[in-house]
Design a protein around this nucleic acid. Structure first.
Lengths: 241, 241
DNA sequence: CATCAATGGTCTGAGACTAGCCCAATCAAC
DNA sequence: GTTGATTGGGCTAGTCTCAGACCATTGATG
């Protein structure tokens, strides 16, 4: 960890790719995180281009690419739009191995470490903040929605629950960072079979996280989140070997 | 915290600005974080352009802007280069108020929350990882360098110490995120007067952080880091009122 | 003092990206 | 059935950005 390592950290590429590539990535993130659920449509092109800070031409190229790849169904005319057709693939150990091979084991470890750090940080911060009644209700609502979810909706609502924790801190930076961290492991999580034992186990852990946050206990929140995320990481490693 | 809030989070601008602006921002980060110390020079233009993934023309525009603004001194010929001339301004409550006014109180709260979450997450993760002897020595070296620092070098070595914690986790994502978090509050920290009491207090907290990490105690590491960062945040608020 | 390698300074042609405009399709409302 | 609002589809002129080549300056070295 010499000084040159820090140079590498800060003087890294200014841009991850061209505008088209970055736009595809961002839309894919919205789709895979379930921010726009299957059957829903993206905002209209003109509005979306403004939000993303790019030209409509570039946005259309990205939408075209995702449409060709089967993620979107684009329809013209009033009440038309770009509808999400993507459904998370059925869990499969082969998909998992392939996904890991594509991203590389180093990047996988990086992503898991990153997620652990930022989500635990978010849980800690939220627990330490005085939660208003409205926010408490919001968190509890997200938890009960997750607990009542069908297998089909589970991943999407799990994502919603986890992201809510970061959002409720009120920090936009933290929320975007947690969304980024989640999307980096999203494909991997989708590949894990959803066994009832694991879902039950996760439900207990989710409850522990919420309890600690509502109790205003940062240490307990951190521990509960760590346990939950390391459990997931262990599952991942298990299905990889 | 309805669903539309999540849309805002994910469908945010793809790019923070044009290539020139983002490059200026990145170089400024390297300078203000002390990654290139005063008197040092940036890598040669051709190499730096490759590292940043931009054209030499754009890089030169950014360097020119920073040179005009007094951050760099550009010299031609062999052994020439872009030398850092920037020295952190002397602490001043007026500067602080101005800096806060420029970024806005909401962004300030966001940045402080963000920093708290990611640095605590990094400390926790590092404490939970089995540190090799080399890494332990590295961390201790950074701490002792900071403790022996002159007032002039203090901020730069404090930054180096904090960033080392994230870097030692081995997660590039976490390291860049902590660097980003630090740079968002860097100007504010520079504006805080460096009183001996505060420095002594910080030294004790730094020691506690290192002790907890070396002891492999994530809870203690998280608590020590929280205490340290909240102390700094409290100092900031104090000088603002 | 002459050399020469490394560095910043400059130019050009090509491609990426944008803003703004108009066209085409769709469908609820009348 | 007609209308009108909303949406995707497409075009153009202009700006930003890039890759690559070449020039100018500097100063350690022989």
């Amino acid at each position: 960890m010499d000084e040159s390592a820090r140079l590498m950290t800060v003087l890294r590429p200014v841009r991850a790719g061209n505008a088209f590539e970055e736009t595809v990535e961002r839309l894919l993130q919205a789709i895979k995180l379930g921010v726009v659920a299957p059957g829903d449509k993206l905002p209209a092109e003109r509005e979306l281009a403004v939000r993303l800070g790019i030209s409509r031409v570039t946005l259309r190229e990205a939408i075209r690419a995702l449409s060709d790849a089967g993620y979107l169904d684009v329809r013209r005319g009033r009440y038309g739009g770009a509808f999400v057709t993507y459904e998370p693939p059925k869990p499969d150990a082969g998909d998992l191995r392939q996904a890991v091979a594509e991203m590389g084991v180093d990047d996988l470890a990086d992503a898991l470490t990153f997620r652990l750090a930022v989500e635990c940080g978010a849980a800690q911060v939220l627990a330490a903040s005085g939660l208003t009644g409205e926010k408490r209700a919001d968190l509890l609502r997200r938890l009960s929605e997750l607990n009542e979810a069908s297998l089909e909706d589970y991943r999407r609502l799990d994502t919603a629950f986890h992201l809510s924790i970061a959002e409720l801190t009120g920090s936009t930076l933290l929320a975007t960072t947690c969304a980024d961290a989640r999307s980096r492991v999203s494909d991997l999580l989708n590949a894990i079979p959803m066994l009832q034992v694991n879902l039950d186990h996760a439900a207990v852990q989710h409850q522990a996280i919420v309890d600690a946050i509502l109790a205003g206990d940062p240490d307990a929140a951190r521990r509960a989140m760590t346990e939950h995320l390391e459990g997931t990481a262990a599952l991942l490693r298990g299905f990889l070997s």
